[in-house]
Design a protein around this nucleic acid. Structure first.
Lengths: 157, 157
DNA sequence: CTATGGCTTTGAGCGCGCTCGAACGCAAAC
DNA sequence: GTTTGCGTTCGAGCGCGCTCAAAGCCATAG
C-alpha cells in the first residue's frame, strides 16, 4: 500500500470539512512533476493501484503505453497523465464502459469535444448526488452513534 | 423507479451544499410514519429497491419478515425500520458481510453494544473519507470542465 | 553459471451484490 | 371458470472490476 500516493497527498491538502483549497487545485493540475518515463511499478505506486490493474486498463483500450527495448512498459508523461485522469474518474464512480467511450472520443479528434464535455458535466452531477447521499448517511450514522441504544431503528424518544 | 422514496424525500431536505439541516435529522428519525404492515412492493417502493433485493436481504439473514395467512410477506414496523437502516448502510458502502455481522451482534443481545458502536464509528470514518475523495474528484472534474480542451490531462497553461 | 527478481502475455477465476427464471399458489376481476 | 396479477421458493446466472496463474524472457547479483 502506497502511503504517499497521489490521492493521499491530495487529501492532505484538504481540511477536515473536505472542501478543497486553492492549493489542492494546483496539486491536481500538476499530478506528476517529474517528466521521465516510469516503470509499471512506479506508476502503480503513484496511483495506489497494482500493475495488474494498469495492464488491465491498457488491455481495455484506455491507454497506450510505449515499451523499452526489452518489451517492458515505460509510461511517458502522456500515459501517466491519462492514468491519473482515469483513476480519478474510476474512484469517483465512472464505469469502465464510460471511460472507454470517453477515450474513444478523445481519439476521434476535436469534433467530439462537446460530447466529452457533456459527459463530464453529467459525471459532475453524479458526484454531487453521491456526496449528498453520503452526507445524509453520515448524518444518520452520527445520530445513531450519539444516541446509541443498539437497535437497528432510531428508537426515537 | 420511485420518485418519492425515502432517499429522494430526505435529499430534498438538504441544501445544494449537501449539508443536512435540523429538519433532515427529524426525517431521518421518523422514516416511515405509518405503522401498518406493508407488502413487499410497498417496502420496495419506499426504499427505492426491488422485491428481489428485499427477499435477497432476508435470505442473507439480515431481517426477519412475518407472513400473512397466504404466506405473503407483511413487513411490520420493526422490519421496515431495520431495512431503512440496512439500505442506508448499503448505500453508503457498508458491505453485506459487515451488515450480517452487525445484525448478528444485535441478535446476540446488549452485551455486544460496544462492538456495534465501534462498527458505526469505523463506518463513519469510511464515509468521511469517501466524501473527501469525492470532493477532490469533484474539484478536478470542475476544473476540467472550466478549462476544457479535451485532453485527458490538465494541460496546464 | 545459475539463481533471483521483475517484467511480459494470455486466458481463466473470483468476490460482490444483486437479478432473474421456472414452477407454483392464491384471490379478486371479468 | 378462466384469466390476470401479485406473491412464493429455489437455484442459477450475470455484470462489473479486477486479480491471478502459468509459462516464459531478460538482466543483474552472487
Amino acid at each position: 500500500m502506497a502511503t504517499d500516493d497521489l490521492m493521499t497527498r491530495a487529501l492532505d491538502t484538504l481540511g477536515d470539512d473536505g472542501l478543497p483549497s486553492v492549493e489542492a487545485i494546483h496539486r491536481l493540475t500538476d499530478p506528476a512533476a517529474v517528466s521521465e518515463p516510469m516503470t509499471i511499478a512506479e506508476v502503480a505506486d503513484l496511483l495506489d493501484t497494482s500493475p495488474h490493474t494498469l495492464r488491465y486498463y491498457e488491455r481495455a483500450g484506455l491507454v497506450d503505453v510505449p515499451r523499452d527495448s526489452q518489451g517492458h512498459r515505460l509510461y511517458d508523461t502522456e500515459a501517466v497523465r491519462r492514468l491519473v485522469f482515469l483513476t480519478r474518474m474510476r474512484l469517483s464512480g465512472m464505469p469502465m464502459r464510460d471511460l472507454q467511450h470517453y477515450v474513444a472520443l478523445v481519439d476521434a479528434g476535436p469534433s467530439t469535444e462537446p460530447e466529452r464535455l457533456a459527459m463530464l458535466v453529467e459525471h459532475r452531477a453524479f458526484i454531487r448526488r453521491r456526496i449528498r447521499e453520503l452526507n445524509l448517511s453520515l448524518t444518520a450514522t452520527e445520530y445513531k452513534i450519539a444516541t446509541y441504544g443498539g437497535a437497528t431503528g432510531p428508537d426515537v424518544a
